[in-house]
Amino acid sequence: MRFLFPKFDKVGMPLLGVAAAALFVLEAKRQLRPRTRPLAERLVENGSVAAAALPALRFLLVPVTYATASMVTKKGCGILPLLMLPRWAAYGLGFLMLDYSNYLWHVLLHKSEWLWRFHNVHHTDLDLDLSTAWRFHVGENIASVPYRSAVVVAAGIPASLVLLYEVIFEGCTAFHHSNLRLPLQVERGLSKVMVTPRLHGIHHSIVAKETNSNFSVILSWWDRLHNTLRLNVPQAAITIGTPAYRDPAEQTPKCLFLMPFQKQRPWVLPDGTVPERPEIPNREQLLS
Rank of each mutant, 00 (worst) to 15 (best):
L163I: 04
I142D: 08
T173M: 11
R188L: 13
S149K: 06
L130C: 05
L115I: 06
V167N: 10
R181G: 04
R148N: 10
H123P: 01
L115G: 02
L161M: 08
D127Y: 12
T173S: 11
N141K: 05
S131H: 06
L190P: 06
W134Y: 12
C172F: 12
E187D: 13
K111P: 04
E140R: 00
H176A: 08
D125I: 10
L108T: 02
S112I: 08
L115Y: 09
E166L: 12
L115D: 03
L182K: 10
V107E: 02
W116F: 10
F175W: 03
T173P: 00
A155F: 00
S149C: 08
A150M: 09
F169T: 06
R148G: 04
G156M: 06
H122R: 06
N179A: 07
V138G: 09
L128S: 01
R117S: 14
L130Y: 00
V167G: 09
N120C: 09
L128I: 08
S149Y: 07
N179R: 10
A159Y: 00
L161C: 06
L182E: 14
A174H: 08
I157K: 01
I142F: 12
L115K: 02
E187S: 09
V107K: 02
I142Y: 08
A150V: 07
H177W: 06
Y147V: 06
N179D: 03
G139E: 13
G156R: 12
L164S: 05
K111I: 01
A154V: 13
E187Y: 12
S160I: 08
H106C: 01
H137V: 13
A133S: 15
R135T: 05
G156L: 08
P158G: 11
R117A: 15
L180V: 09
D127L: 11
F169R: 12
S131L: 00
G139C: 08
P146W: 03
S131I: 02
T173V: 15
V107M: 01
P158W: 10
L161R: 03
G139A: 10
A150N: 01
V138R: 14
L164N: 04
V138H: 09
P158K: 12
V167H: 04
W134I: 15
V186Y: 11
V162N: 03
E140M: 02
V162T: 03
A159N: 07
V186D: 10
N179L: 05
A154Q: 00
E170D: 12
L128D: 04
H119R: 03
F175S: 07
F118G: 04
N179E: 02
A155Q: 00
H176L: 08
A174M: 10
R148K: 15
I142R: 00
T132L: 05
S131W: 01
V138W: 14
W116M: 08
L180R: 07
L184S: 14
V121H: 01
E166I: 05
A150K: 05
F169H: 13
N120E: 11
